[in-house]
């Protein structure tokens, strides 16, 4: 039941390796050191990026001030997708190597990812109304991001739908991996099909289609969002591990008393 038990006899190898981090006890010790700096950096960099973007960057020639929604919308969209990629990595580790930490992390990523996806959908809707003339359209990009939101919600529901937590984690991992097919669909929806949503302004292989004075605050915001996402997930994972320990201790006590 309590899969967080192997913590105590943590292997103390001389060489640093990632398997050590996969041990929940070791994860608690290591993350205790970097969680606070990570959180502070996340809050500060996000604040700098958003203040820069929302007040000090130039308005768009066509959209005017409305373009500032971008500094909230685009980083949340990036994090919604990379959060899902993180969930998928945890799911592979959970299914193949059965690391208990991967189960805990997966369970803690999906509510955060769902929140960032909701922020992306809401800010996009608020942006669409003044620019396109509509709150919502069923084009390939908007619909596939809505599916991403439902995948996160489905993952949350599925891992909590079993009495046996390990079976719930396994079912959730399978759902998360099937849903990975949605990531390329979201990314390439705007190039494969005619959509109302415009194609990407920033890509790896061509020059950005955006003024540098807008690009810089966007990247700062995105960096801040990423650190913030990581800080929230690490902190939730820590409390997830401690929750399991407490549950294990309480159960052991109840069994002794019985």
């Amino acid at each position: 039941m309590d899969s967080a038990q192997p913590i105590l006899g943590a292997a103390r190898g001389k060489r640093w390796n990632w398997h050590k981090l996969a041990n929940p006890g070791q994860f608690l010790r290591v993350s205790a050191r970097f969680l606070l700096p990570l959180s502070i950096a996340g809050v500060l960099i996000t604040a700098v990026g958003l203040v820069w973007g929302l007040w000090f960057s130039p308005a768009d020639w066509q959209q005017g001030q409305t373009v500032r929604i971008m500094y909230i919308h685009v980083p949340s969209a990036w994090l919604a997708m990379s959060g899902y990629a993180g969930l998928a990595v945890c799911s592979v580790i959970s299914l193949v190597w059965r690391h208990p930490l991967a189960d805990i992390a997966a369970a803690e990523i999906s509510p955060v990812g769902a929140s960032f996806t909701a922020l992306c959908l809401a800010s996009g809707s608020l942006w669409g109304r003044p620019t396109w003339g509509t709150w919502w359209v069923w084009d390939a990009r908007l619909t596939s991001v809505l599916v991403l939101f439902f995948l996160y919600l489905g993952h949350i529901a599925l891992i909590n739908a079993f009495d046996d937590r390990e079976r719930g984690a396994r079912a959730g991992a399978i759902l998360a991996l099937v849903g990975v097919i949605n990531l390329p669909i979201i990314k390439f929806s705007v190039t494969w099909w005619n959509t109302l949503h415009q194609p990407a302004s920033i890509s790896l292989f061509s020059a950005p289609k955006m003024y540098v004075g807008m690009l810089a605050p966007l990247f700062v915001s995105a960096l801040g969002y990423t650190l913030l996402f990581a800080a929230i997930v690490v902190s939730r994972t820590r409390s997830g591990i401690m929750e399991r320990r407490v549950r294990g201790l309480l159960q052991a006590r109840a069994e002794r008393a019985a």
């Binding site: 130039p58 308005a59 959209q63 620019t131 396109w132 415009q198 289609k209 003024y211």
Partner: peptide
């Protein structure tokens, strides 16, 4: 439709 370009006034 909005294109992918962002440019100051």
């Amino acid at each position: 439709k909005h294109d992918a370009n962002y440019m100051p006034k």
